[in-house]
Amino acid sequence: MWKSLKKYWFIFWKFRAIRFMMLLEYRGNFWFWAFVSLMWTVFNFFFFDLIIGARNELAGWNKTEMYVLISTFTMLDAFTWSFFYHNMRDYIASIFNGQLTITLTRPINSQFLLSVQNNSYTNVVRFFVGLGILIVTLRNGQIPLTLAGVIGFALFFFISLLFVYTLWFIVATCSFWVDRLDNINELVPSTRRVWQVPKEVFTGFASTFFSVLLPLSLIASLPSEILLGRASFQWLAYYAVFTAVLFWLAHLFFTFSIRKYSGVAN
């Protein structure tokens, strides 16, 4: 077990190193895309600034709280683009072009290999911009920080990443079941609008849907609520359990879908 963990840990970082070497190959590209990602971050803050500007609050969250939420979202989003997007894109492409065969013949957990092979570093800047704004907002808003709050935030930040990853992995795995679907990889990131608003924005059925059935609205809301000291235990517990179950289902679905995999050529 320990040896196996060590192997996976080593391979995970080996991939990061490989990607870093590639980055050094294409430096120009890196700066360009880092700039584009930064531009979107600024644009996003500006967009919400305008909306909040109308009433100085949104669904019961004041401007400071909204900034905590949006910076949390920004940090999560940085992971979305640097990690999940690339791996899932490659995963889907490998299903359609048959390259998956190589992954499947390796003596290593295929799901692991498919999920960690790729990453880009262009959104690292974005992550730190988000973190910077979060710290400044907390300080300027005089929001008291506790150790438990920070640890809880980190934990639920991780759970949110796991939730996004799992959801994305399930969606990507659906590629086994369709002839071809080029934009399937855009599905999860396209729901980002839901993540970046307080869960209270949704009412009625939308609220049930986005908070309970498919808790996209909890992704950034819950970690932010922990920092702001307004999180409720029930929601946290529900979200954590939901994510764990979803993770397990994703694994089952993957194993099941591999059976369907027929390769492109025969």
Binding site: K7, I11, F15, T101, I102, P107, L113
Partner: peptide
């Protein structure tokens, strides 16, 4: 018709990765 080598890196990097994967 399919390749496993990393296109943008020397083949040696792919060899080292396989070394880790195949232990």
């Amino acid at each position: 018709q399919k390749n496993q080598l990393w296109w943008d890196l020397p083949a040696m990097e792919s060899f080292l990765l396989n070394k880790a994967i195949y232990e």
